[in-house]
Amino acid sequence: MFQIQVLGDSREFRCGENTSLLSAMAKVGINCIPVGCRSGGCGVCKVRVLSGTFTAKVMSRKQVSVAEEANGMALACRIFPKSSMVVEVVEKKLKK
């Protein structure tokens, strides 16, 4: 299990390497990253990875371009940690 920190939020949570960041967050009742389709399509949970390593499943190119992905942008529902991570929410698209 790895420690996950969302910039600007004091509530850290833990995530195993077979669980998506978003799923691990939702399971413990934290809502610092907006939750949308949870399938890599809608882009609501877009984050910038500030530190840490991870693997990623395919994400909608409309939501995360090749250049963005190379710069550490990702959808939290599609990334699986390989270390502790710090991420930043890109856009608060949903009001809650």
């Binding site: 389709c37 809608c42 609501v44 909608s60 698209k93 949903l94």
Partner: peptide, 9 residues
């Protein structure tokens, strides 16, 4: 529910 209104593909 904001998700129902705003989550689209």
């Amino acid at each position: 529910n904001e998700r129902f209104l705003e989550v689209l593909t």
